[in-house]
Computed example of a mutant assay.
Amino acid sequence: MSSSAKPQFSRMSLNLLMLVSIVLIVILYEPAAKQAEQPLPAAPTLNASIWLSDSGSKIWFHPALADTIEIQFWYKAGFRYDGQHKGQAHLLAQLLKYESVQRKLPMEISLDQDFIKVVLHLSSSPISLKKQIEQTVALLYHPKLNNSLLNKLRQPSSSLSQDLRQQAYGQHAYAGPQRGTQESLSQISRADLQKFHHEYIHPKRLFASIVGDVNERSAGIIMETLLPNSRRHPASDPPLIPQTVSYASRDNMAILVKPGLNNLGKQSQQVRLVKDYLLMQVLQDLLPSQIKWVTGQSNNTIYLQQLAQFRQNMRDNADWDMILRAKRRLASHWLQQAEGAKALSRYLVHLNAYDLPVNHMQLNLNHLQSITMDSWQQFYQTQLTELTF
């Protein structure tokens, strides 16, 4: 009975086999290592035109192929300007939103600490466009401010996030409360809202953008028609001193106050902000949907839920490989801000409102690329201390 012969390997053959295995491992793993270290993509070149309207508004324009003409109006009328009438900016924004629905305008209205934001999706059809512009001008500069609805809106609301915000900001204008208090709302009359509207929904207090399938001359005509001169005097801005970095926490929730976009005078401050952005991306990866970032002129505000889980995950899970992946996701998010007319109109008004350069995205990408493992670990340890109070 014959038996199969066992293969015989010499020492030289075994050494050669080991060498080939090592080479294969290097070849197979080298592309992955190189991929992790690839440079971030470049930002698109924006050929934006910038001008002041006859009524004093600063406008950014960029042409784009789109079915609609996308326009953004950011009025310096956020709740930081409420003064003693806490809640009046919120009431005005809600009344304008209600009237825009009644007029069936393609419009969205929102409010934050700095701005009342109006988004327009106008038709490219000349007849429809003319009608929409007329309706928009009537709403923005001659609103009805429905008194019966105003009475219904005088309802304050409280929440843990608002309580923590007031604790973190103290006497700063960003403290709010955005929706006012029972006492402040009861004292706000329709006449008070009219006065606030005349002084703050004013062309000289406006940052705007327009993006669409129109040339610069047509864009200028549209914006001049939307922004007539006002005989009224705009409100003046009181000085706003940034709040120092602070935090407040309760019941597994926290608010962290960071430097805002108007505090970027030095490159080191710009790099610090990019690291903050990267930190937010990392935190989102650790616990999706449990974090909210609100951009501000004076300060940025971070809302954290499930704080105990965040603390544990930050200690255990944020290794350098995760940071590299987060860098690419953050870069991708930034690039998407310039894709399509709607996103681009919002990005341009963002640059406009925060007085950022047209190449701001590329500068951020450069700063993001420059973050090394050592510089990130030093920054991360500091943040870990702040977020594990």
Rank of each mutant, 00 (worst) to 15 (best):
Y247S: 10
L351Q: 06
T301K: 10
G176T: 05
S55D: 07
I25Y: 07
K130V: 07
Q132T: 08
T295P: 09
M1V: 14
K76W: 02
V274Q: 00
S148T: 12
S21R: 10
Y347C: 00
K258R: 05
L226F: 04
R232T: 15
D319S: 12
L240W: 02
H121Y: 12
T136M: 07
R217M: 09
D213F: 07
S189K: 06
H367T: 02
Q336M: 12
Q309K: 15
S289E: 14
D54F: 05
G296L: 00
K58A: 06
P106N: 11
L140D: 00
K104V: 09
W60H: 05
S49F: 12
P234G: 06
A66Q: 10
N47D: 11
Q362T: 04
V214C: 10
Y81K: 00
Q155H: 08
W376N: 05
Q182N: 15
K195T: 14
S124M: 03
Y247V: 11
S236T: 15
W51I: 13
H142S: 09
S209V: 04
M12N: 08
Y141I: 09
Q38K: 15
P239K: 14
L387D: 06
A36G: 09
F73I: 00
N313R: 13
L286N: 01
V271T: 14
G180H: 03
D251T: 12
L261I: 01
V282N: 00
A42L: 14
K117V: 12
S100G: 11
A32S: 14
L111Q: 12
D112C: 06
N366H: 10
G212R: 02
E99N: 04
L40K: 07
N364W: 03
H85I: 05
Y303H: 14
G220M: 05
S236A: 10
H197N: 08
I25N: 05
A173W: 00
P7K: 03
V271C: 05
L365K: 03
V214A: 14
R154H: 08
A318L: 09
L139V: 08
K86F: 04
S3M: 13
K195Q: 08
A48C: 05
E183V: 11
A191R: 03
L368D: 07
S148I: 07
L240Q: 08
Q162A: 10
P7A: 07
Q72S: 08
I133T: 02
P106C: 03
L52D: 04
Q243C: 12
H172I: 06
Y81F: 06
P44E: 08
Q381D: 11
S289I: 03
Y247A: 12
A168L: 00
L96R: 02
R325W: 12
L273A: 15
L226M: 13
I27E: 03
V211W: 02
E339K: 14
D237E: 14
D355N: 15
Q88E: 09
K131N: 13
Q383I: 13
Q84E: 06
P63H: 14
F389H: 15
Q113R: 09
V119G: 12
N359L: 01
L307Q: 08
G180Q: 01
L120W: 07
S4E: 13
W51K: 07
V274T: 03
L96V: 01
N15L: 15
Q38W: 15
G296N: 05
T382Y: 10
E339M: 09
R311C: 02
S10Q: 11
A66T: 04
Q337D: 01
L256N: 07
Q35V: 15
P259Y: 01
L153H: 01
Q194N: 04
T136D: 03
T382M: 14
